[in-house]
Write a protein that binds this DNA or RNA. Structure first.
Lengths: 164, 164
DNA sequence: ACTATACACACTAGATGGGTTTTGTATAGT
DNA sequence: ACTATACAAAACCCATCTAGTGTGTATAGT
């Protein structure tokens, strides 16, 4: 993912990925049958890791809900904001044709997790609306800010307002 | 703006704009000294019209606040969502170097107007945060939806949640 | 379960150059 | 306050070529 993020999908060569992985190019083809397969596997792994982290954070019911939500969004979106990290988000956003469902499924799962977490205080029927609005606010803030810090500041405000 | 939106700034010729305006190309140069000047004037006019519409909608204190806010956002952002209209937003977004402050000033003014409108019910110190979050949600929703109708549906939910 | 080497094929980047379009201006006319 | 015509200079577009790079595969070796 680091290599794909640096150069973009198209301009990343299997040679470069192999070098970064410390193996030979034919060896890389032994593990992944094509560049597409490799990229899909890399994205799947990254998103699964993020979703797992989000599940973990939200499950810790000892901490205040708003705090857990901020950290969940940070794991999901915040970590991909900023000079170096945003390239990872870009290479994923820029290749929807290549990824297809791979990106949609975790996205739905994230919404589900946020909805469930919010349901406890916002109520069963309001939860989907609150969660959806929270996600929209997160996307908007992500487009407005340049650093993870500012994102988190603004997000905390949004979450506190939406949890009232 | 319609012509610029259709073809993009670069691929729009002064000839085409002149034809759309029903005048000759030299006549167009009589009114606007260059293509850049013309484009800046067109964008300025469009944004001024939007801001004026927003001011007008928000000033009608007879109607419920949430209703006025939804319509204000619709005038500001909603009207540029959808198959034909989004080209207008694109040609503006795609040329920030050409427009510079022209786009930033009305944007600040819009935030100011929303903040003032919200201040009445949300309180003086909370208003900037509520307004900012509302704008972020609007931006996020705009990125998520494909039609003005869905945008307005989702926005109404967001506004109602943030006004509580 | 790999490495090293090699190869066909496809694609891409960059360079060249010619032809068209477009900009901005000028000029004469209404 | 324009139109019509014209023009130089720049920009852009398009086709063509070549050189290089990258993919995917194969083969022999450890």
């Amino acid at each position: 993912m680091v290599t794909f993020a640096r150069f973009g999908y198209r301009k990343t060569s299997m040679e470069e990925v192999a070098r970064a992985a410390g193996i030979s190019r034919p060896g890389l083809y032994f593990l992944f049958s094509s560049k597409e397969t490799l990229f899909r596997a890399a994205v799947t792994q990254a998103l699964n890791r993020d979703i797992t982290a989000v599940e973990h954070v939200l499950a810790d019911t000892g901490r205040p809900l708003s705090e857990r939500l901020v950290e969940a969004f940070d794991q999901w979106a915040g970590r991909y904001i900023g000079p170096l990290a945003s390239d990872v988000a870009m290479v994923i956003e820029d290749n929807p044709d290549l990824l297809g469902e791979i990106i949609k499924t975790p996205r739905r799962r994230f919404e589900e997790l946020i909805t469930d977490a919010v349901a406890i205080t916002s109520g069963r029927e309001a939860a989907p609306l609150v969660a959806q609005t929270m996600i929209s606010a997160s996307i908007g803030i992500k487009h407005q800010v340049a650093s993870r810090e500012v994102y988190l500041e603004r997000l905390e405000v949004a979450i506190d307002l939406l949890l009232r």
